[in-house]
Structures are given as structure tokens and as C-alpha cells.
Amino acid sequence: MKYTKEMRLHWTKWVWLALMAIGCTGLDKPLPILGPREVDGADTLYHTIAPFRFVDQDSAVVTNADFTGKIYVADFFFTSCRTICPIMKTQMLRVYEATTEMPDVLLLSHTIDPEWDTVALLHDYAERLGVESRRWHFVTGQKDSIYKIAQTSYFATAMEDRSEPDGFIHSGAFLLIDRRGRIRGKYDGTKEEEVNRLIGDLKRLRRE
């Protein structure tokens, strides 16, 4: 049989259609819901971030209510940290810049060294980074509540360890939280590619 130009066109048309179908399903596939879940009859109860109450760089009280109906990215750091935090903050700034036009997206950075990182110090830090407190909250609070919420709600490591050069161990994770307080992604906040993935996932989550 002779292979004609028409046949080739016919083929490529189908290949394109197939590629488009795969591409679209890939885009529409929802992000996973992370953490343990309970099945209660016909309902599935997903893990959500526990209620919290912290104070931000403007001395404003920040609670879950401020994040209801919002998508947010959370992390744990401290201002005097010289290991991974500066890299995390460089990367979080990228997320901040990428979400300038997204009023429904907020950032929440918890200090794990509340004794040193006072409200005044966090205020100065945020101002020096040149970021708005309306979109990026730097919060402090009771040390125990911060460590507890890190470990039991966000599944991120945060604790004091005098044997470490800076006195703390903590993960460099960025957590993506949806409008209902559920964890939808965990990323290494010290790696540019991971943060690119986070920014992509954020956009997908907004379309949900």
C-alpha cells in the first residue's frame, strides 16, 4: 500500500487529539489530600490544621479564621538562623512575587525561636524583606504551641537542640494548605525546582 500525504495527516491529527486529552486530564487531576483520614459511613474526614492563635509582625492576632477560604503556604524558621532559613526566605520571596495578583493566597511563616524573635524583630525583618503584612504574616507565640502545631498539624520538624550550631533543628518544608485547612502539598523550601512545583500547584489549587 502506498503511504500518502493524506494518511500522514490523518495520523498526526489523532496523535494531537490524544496528546491534548492526556494533557487536559493531567491538568484537571486534583492535588492529593495529605495526612491521615477517617472514613465515617459515606463521609471521609480529612486531616486539617488544628485551631491556632498567634501574633504577627504588626501585633495583630492571627487565627484560623484569617485563613478560612484562603489558600496559604506555611513554613517554620527563625531570623538568626544561618543554615537553611536564608535560602528558604529567598525561595518564599519567589512565591510572594508569583502571587502578587492573587488576593486569595497568603503566606504564613512561624518563628521557632519566639524568645529571640519578638514582634518588633519580626516587624523589622518583614520590613527589610520589603513585604506586606497583609499578604505575608510572620507569627510568634507560645513556644510549645508553635512546636506542637508544626509537628501534629503540618507534620514538619521543629524543635530545640542545643547540640546544633544554631540551637534548633527544623525542616525546610513549605506546606500548601487549601481553603478548608487541608494539606495539599509538601515541598522542600530550599530547592528552586521544588518551589517551582509549588507555584504550579498553587495555580491548580486556585482553579478547584
Binding site: R82, T83, I84, P86, I87, T90, L93, Y125, R128, L129
Partner: peptide, 15 residues
């Protein structure tokens, strides 16, 4: 380089 960055540019008005 963590703070002053790999290219020596620092970070905003922090470093």
C-alpha cells in the same frame, strides 16, 4: 552564601 547569596548580592535589606 546562604545569606549573602551565591552571587554576593545579599537579600533585600536583610543581608
Amino acid at each position: 552564601s546562604n545569606c549573602h547569596q551565591r552571587d554576593g548580592q545579599g537579600l533585600r535589606r536583610v543581608y
